[in-house]
Design a protein around this nucleic acid. Sequence first.
DNA 1: GCTATGA
DNA 2: TCATAGCAACGCTGT
DNA 3: ACAGCG
Length: 781
Amino acid sequence: MARVPKKLGPYRDKRAPGITNEPFGDEAPAIDARASSKPGQTESGAFVVHLHDATKRHYDVRLEIGGVLLSFAVPHGPSLDPAKKVLAVKTEDHPIEYLDFEDVIPDGQYGAGSMIVWDRGSVTYVEGPAETELAKGKLHVELRGMKLRGRWAFVKLAKGETGNEWLLFKKQDGESDPVRAIAITEDLPRSVLSGLTVDELAGRDEIERSHLERAKKLGAKKDASLVGTLLERERSPLATPSVHEGAAAKGARVYDAQLEGVRVLAVRDGDVVALRVWTGRTPERIEAFYPDVVRALRALPMTRAAFDGELVAFDATGHPNLPRLAQRVARIAKGEAHRAVTTTPVVLVVNDVLALGDLDTRPLKLEARRALVSGLLPPLGFLRAATPLEGDEARVLATCASLGIANVIAKGKGSAYTEGQGRWSLLSTGLPPRSRSVVDHKAGEHQTTLRHVVVSNREKVFWPADPSANLRARTENYTKGDLVDYYASIADVLGPYLKDRPVILVRYPDGIDGKSFFQWNVPVGMPPWIRTLTLAHDLDEGALASTGATSPTPSRVSSPPPSQKAPKRVFLVEDRSTLVYIANLGCIPLHVLASRAPDLARADFFTIDFDVKQSELRHAVTLARTLRGLLDAIGLVGYPKTSGQTGLHVLVPLGPNQSFDTARALADLLGRLLVERHPDIATMDRIVSRRGDRVYVDTGQTGTSRAIVAPYSVRAVPGATVSTPLAWEEVTADLDPRAFTITTVPRRIAERGDLFAGLLAAQPDIPTAVAKLAVLVERSR
DNA sequence: GCTATGA
DNA sequence: TCATAGCAACGCTGT
DNA sequence: ACAGCG
Ligand SMILES: [Mn+2]
Ligand SMILES: [Mn+2]
């Protein structure tokens, strides 16, 4: 049995286990709950203030000390006026689990009546360890709660009747309010958990019905399966803002500050609470990192609901701060949940509502949905309604800029909630380089690490609009942000493809018209979680390794002999964070080797590249289809993709254990057969001037150090095209590679899936293919 | 885009 | 402190 | 030996 603090004796004596709904204090507290300070030397902890409607209504202030909650009953409640000292009667210690207790204690039980969590936060004992001070009849604390903040003091009355009488008062500081402009207990009466007043708690079912009634009156239609659907479905139901300024209807607009946090769909279905994110193409659930938000959603007087919101942590000045949130996630991952959650609370700022009860609220007008949200959520709590801005757009942007907010989302008044891109506009306040960050809540197999990537210069134009482009072509700019978003959104499709495969970055830090360079080696200064591969001497050998971001090998004292090549350390791009990171470096195309660690001497596919250049795409199409026939005849399968420029690539999987010599030989022989069959439109001549207007059949991209542009890679050409996997049925004369761009390809993947699936799993019979190809070649001469 | 360098 | 250079590869061809 | 090519 768990070790129960002796201090809880009086608490347990007053209560009947199994009958009261209060925690009984016999469960082992969170592992780190008692470890936050040395035994008997508590320096900090959590606090809760309950509002308890017992025989006599009172507040209960409970401070974590030595693994239990030191408790005071405060009849008048705290005051921000330092001159107003209120009576605080020390009561029995409560178990640590009581921090989260909010319920109606049944009649007949000790303390029967409603009890809400009026405030919650962290406490620091500012004048030495709590136990030491307590022994002297004093306790000076710094509270960081949602309502109570700053310095407070408890002082024991020397001549109390029972010895339990103390005084509680505010110390003078920036948070004190001597003129009592704020009557904190009256102005902020609601639970920070459920948003209910203590009077409402017992009637929460009634409250829930009235919220639903209101939604129905506003026009919400019944869809009993919606919440369940939102809990499960793959595709994101969230609306995403478009960088297209005109996406939101001009005219009447409402503005939401874009907070630096984690965008989630929050769903509650009874006891089930999910926080779902679609940072990539497949959803993840991250509620394990947000027990405070989960508790609040469970406490809400709405048993089934779905919200669109932002998880936000705040810094000391009250500004949203993503690195702090990141740090908290990391600490929770390390098993320090209690401390991390206590010191860094996270709030769900709710921007919108998709479903309430059995009602679909998405078709409602924006203002109606807002009204429902702000009616349901308290102004101060773990769940909060976002406060939209209205008025002149320039003024709104200026206001936000002055608050340090870089981006604002404009939404058309009266608009319904529509999933996907298109109805909201992302506006820049013109603040310094606008940045956005991405938080991964899981990385690697079991280890949960936080990866926090700050994306700089999202508005930087990487693909300038082409004013001379024909009408059907996009005339807008594409930005660096568009690039990052594209790679982030397709990371899951790209992932298996890039696994264990060296990637060469082709970087355009200033966009497609700026300078560019290839980058094989991982430069210094990369974050430690970027995986790399060290290539031993030649590409014949290589070992899997992870960088420490630290010492760039000071081991090699003497420089290597000039003849010998320095060992290379290349990128392995195996996850979304890395993809976002390298996109932020200005990497537009990704090139990959046709081999994977640890067997870099083996080719797992070869490529036949149809370079159109002076020729025409329809000829490349003819050649690719002929190639398909040849491959079929020798028992191989080709996977076609656009190059992203003007030509086509056909990738032919080889399965395991094939040498680059074999791969290259197959490619060359197939190329020769193609040229023989179509001498008028194909050539393998390396001299450009002799090619004329024929397609160059390039088989030279197969070799240990030869790279090809990866499938789904973006190209640094006008139009922000993507090297796009195709179905053979699409390889026709009317194929238009310009249609595949960083905006269209994610949609295409969502609709058609990964057309290259199967390439990696192929196990073709290569010896037979080689033999059959030899026969074909023999026959043709 | 970022670091190491040489002036 | 500031401006700038470097950031890949390799075999083959033709001159 | 060196530049051009993909
Ligand atoms: Mn009480
Ligand atoms: Mn080529």
